[in-house]
Design a protein around this nucleic acid. Structure first.
Lengths: 295, 295
DNA sequence: TCTGTGTTCTTTGTCGATAATGTGCAGCCT
DNA sequence: AGGCTGCACATTATCGACAAAGAACACAGA
């Protein structure tokens, strides 16, 4: 079984949502940019839609025949790329399943467990190794270093260094930089979520990711920006499976974010640094606490 | 052709140097730790040596029959692992051969050019991507971001942040920490090379690597320590192919290192920071200058 | 003349197969 | 009793193959 056709299936599903009975789909190149895939894939989708009786396709005309039914969609689990599946399975194993530091990781076993070839697992592990949670012994196995308190400390130490630098750079951005507009949009989004915090507190993760990425971006340094990927993946999976006190924690964090945003807007270095430190040490604390309860 | 037997060949060559006529080689496990390979490989080596008439092997006795000749050694180019070969070829291409930023990298083409399978090239590129010089477009090619001034600036900015932190941590190390002994050994090595600088200035690279790694180690932070790999590889290959003013540059750097080491020994934070900054800004300058002439 | 389509070709992502290398166990020698 | 050897087995590194996905180009239609 070579390449999965997940790109096709995912794009097909998204294309279904574009169907409006009576109208015609746009041109192939336009669909390409709409769906973010190549023309080859777009044409496969169109062919498939013809077979399913969803459209009539003749050169430039792609007349929609009927609205898509539930059964027209591919099941969601078939639309995520192989590496995503591997990532999820693996993260679950090391964050939730009791994975002791020092444990060996076996490519073959992992591959069999997930039901994929060894190559994919191998490539995933290589990519993943930059997160510092695993390490390779050449010609031999991988060693799991574990999501320990030690790891979290090291991660957060670097994060603080980088974020302070980025925040300072952000404050120094010229007034007409588009980042300021984005910051304002993000502020509004925070306020909205906060207004309905009890039912929307889970949206905080996304806000958090967006805000911090926006700030890192201002550093103009690829190493700082790339490092945020590590933070993001760790926080993402960790909190996904550790929802204790999420409501309270997220509410508090949103308020801190708003302070942080206000501080940035003043463009005064001392104010920015203070708000940044405050938020980061609070984030550190809650990660450490949730690690304590998890262990 | 599966796995190359470079581990075997390299270990065989190293084992040849252990042969002393009239004596017997040590036990298999001992050879393992001496050569850093598994018993299987050691036993292959012993078998091969029997075939070559170098030793008589009977259970515990491995009597050496004759000294190894030049022709007993495997050619050196057969002893480096595939990924090393790929790395060298690739680095040469992007640092020496005119490689414009934005250029596409083609796995297949690279593989054919080097004469290896695509899998190896692919895995190399994935590993290499963490250095920030290339970037992947999923389902499509890699993009070369180029060893530009911009890249160098970003790299050095982070380096300075990290090294200042590490140097401070080093100065705070307890007096009986083994790092102090290593620092002293390194200082002596510097002095020795300096005494004969005209003929030994090329040894500076190794000293540089050892000193900075020793210092980063003190941070106790895997992200800081791992980041040094990026510095190391960039400096290694860059200066390997840019030897202009090497004699002068290295001599100056050794003096700075000695100052830096002295400052660390005082354990006074201000002295350490000053020496560290001085050396780093000088390193930055010389990298930037050599980039200017290269471009 | 420009944008869209038909067609063909190239490249990537994934797999299974295979030699090299590493690992574990039972018996043997000192 | 402790380390060494002999042997059988498990795992990794590398390759070639092939379907999915992307890219190039000539022609057609507005």
């Amino acid at each position: 079984m070579p390449k999965q056709n997940t790109v096709f299936k995912d794009a097909y599903n998204r294309c279904l949502r574009l169907l409006v009975v009576g109208e015609s789909l746009p041109s192939e190149p336009e669909l390409c940019s709409l769906l973010g895939v190549s023309r080859t894939t777009v044409r496969s989708i169109l062919s498939q839609m013809v077979e399913a009786g969803l459209i009539e396709w003749n050169k430039r005309s792609k007349a929609v025949q009927r609205p898509p039914a539930k059964s027209d969609y591919f099941p969601e689990h078939e639309t995520s790329s192989l590496s995503d599946v591997i990532e999820r399975t693996f993260m679950k194993r090391i964050l939730v399943g009791g994975a002791e530091p020092g444990m060996q990781i076996n490519e073959l076993e992992l591959a069999r467990e997930i039901g994929v070839g060894t190559t994919s697992v191998r490539e995933f592990l290589i990519r993943f190794s930059r997160f510092g949670l695993i390490e390779k012994r050449p010609n031999s196995h991988w060693v799991l270093k574990g999501f320990t308190r030690q790891f979290a400390e090291e991660l957060i130490d670097v994060r603080e260094m980088f974020e302070l630098k980025s925040a300072a750079a952000f404050a120094a951005l010229p007034i007409d930089d588009p980042a300021w507009a984005e910051l304002e949009a993000l502020r509004r989004a925070h306020v909205e979520v906060l207004a309905d915090i009890d039912s929307r507190y889970l949206e905080f993760s996304e806000l958090d990711d967006r805000l911090h990425r926006l700030i890192q971006q201002a550093s103009g340094n690829r190493f700082i920006i790339d490092f945020y990927d590590i933070i993001a993946i760790v926080f993402h999976y960790h909190y996904q499976w550790n929802k204790a006190n999420a409501r309270e924690r997220n509410g508090k964090a949103i308020l801190e974010h708003l302070d942080y945003i206000e501080a940035l807007k003043t463009r005064r270095p001392e104010a920015v640094e203070a708000a940044c430190r405050l938020h980061l040490s609070s984030a550190r604390l809650s990660l450490m606490q949730s690690l304590a309860t998890a262990a």
